[in-house]
């Protein structure tokens, strides 16, 4: 992956956001929960140095219908100026459709026929300064690409190709999650805006096109129940505050930072608060994690090892813990000081 700086120096930028893929709009809604930074922080120019941002998102737009779609048509005709294309929802296979369509956004002004989302991606992705896939559906296909689905849908990189480069020379930027963790997206966007302003190098992405600083660690590595795992102490049902791997948690093999970061401003999460990790940030989601409430196949082997080793460790720790829970004997209210105090210590 290239790491050369792109000194673009843009001072104004549009965000064209389509949530008309196979989506639930949950990623848009999630982003309104972000506070680090918040959407309004970015739009109102609170973060110094970022370009001025014009957001075109269906859920929040003041304009309706044609007035809303105008920016998309302008971008298609090279009349808008630099823009970031954000795609939410998976991309259906419209080749299996006959005369119909699985999803569309707006009508063709000439024919009056619906314009499919696929057509919009074909038109806009090559012209975009950057292309961002938000949510696991847009990144890798997600829940709507489950086995047995009728639409044959896929992720953006499946559709555009893994070697795709935007007009700004960037690969697709994937921010997975179902929904996307609010601050993860806003932070990725903030990096891109810094980069667009010429203040940051190319965003560091891994080979699945995820920001490395957000998706480089596993759920388990950030989980505060990991200590129970190490001690071989597992929950047998959902009443327990202990490690959930034996009742369905896939955290040890899933790249996601929610246990470490919390869901919103440190509140909430998944296994750290009693919710099994179902792998919703992963390319293999959901099929490779179902049935969700069964123990992951790898879990039983490693849990057996940590069970044997852990029970011994737990016994030894419990002895030490016992000692640590007792105060030293010189803390008392008797008439004689027993702390070992010696005013001439070291002089004798």
């Amino acid at each position: 992956m290239t790491t050369t700086q792109t000194p673009t120096g843009l001072d104004e930028l549009h965000i064209l956001w389509t949530s008309e893929g196979m989506s639930c709009d949950g990623d848009t809604v999630s982003v309104t929960a972000a506070s680090l930074p918040s959407l309004e922080d970015v739009l109102l120019g609170l973060v110094p140095g970022l370009p001025k941002v014009h957001l075109h998102n269906k859920v929040l737009a003041t304009e309706v219908g044609d007035a809303f779609m105008a920016a998309f048509h302008q971008a298609h005709h090279d009349e808008l100026g630099p823009f970031i294309l954000v795609v939410e929802g998976s991309i259906p296979n419209e080749r299996i459709n006959g005369d119909g369509f699985w999803t569309s956004m707006g009508n063709d002004p000439v024919t009056g026929e619906p314009i499919t989302v696929n057509e919009w991606i074909d038109r806009l992705a090559p012209k975009a300064w950057a292309v961002v896939a938000i949510g696991t559906c847009a990144t890798y296909g997600g829940i709507h690409a489950m086995a047995g689905n009728p639409t044959g849908c896929m992720g953006l990189a499946d559709y555009l190709g893994k070697d795709f480069r935007s007009a700004g020379g960037l690969p697709i930027v994937n921010v997975p999650g179902c929904p996307v963790q609010p601050d993860n997206f806003m932070e990725t966007l903030t990096w891109l805006l810094y980069q667009a302003a010429g203040m940051a190098p190319t965003i560091p992405l891994d080979d699945l096109l995820r920001p490395t600083w957000l998706f480089g660690k596993t759920v388990h590595e950030g989980c505060d129940r990991g200590g129970y795992y190490e001690q071989g102490d597992f929950a047998h049902d959902y009443n327990s505050p202990k490690c959930l791997v034996r009742v369905g948690c896939w955290g040890p093999v899933v790249n996601c930072n929610v246990t470490k970061r919390g869901w919103m401003d440190g509140v909430g999460g998944c296994p750290n608060v009693g919710g099994i990790c179902i792998g919703c940030t992963m390319p293999g989601f959901p099929d490779k994690f179902m049935p969700f409430m069964d123990e992951p196949p790898g879990g039983s082997v490693s849990a057996a090892f940590s069970g044997a080793y852990g029970s011994l460790i737990r016994r030894m720790r419990s002895i030490t813990n016992n000692t640590a829970n007792k105060e030293p004997k010189w803390r008392h209210n008797r008439r004689r000081l027993t702390s070992g105090y010696d005013p001439r210590w070291g002089n004798g």
Partner: peptide, 19 residues
């Protein structure tokens, strides 16, 4: 999120109760 883990797709809801 305090009750259901996260928003909008909850993490701590199960048949038979919650985690």
């Amino acid at each position: 999120c305090l009750m259901e883990g996260r928003h909008v797709h909850p993490s701590t809801l199960y048949p038979g109760g919650v985690g």
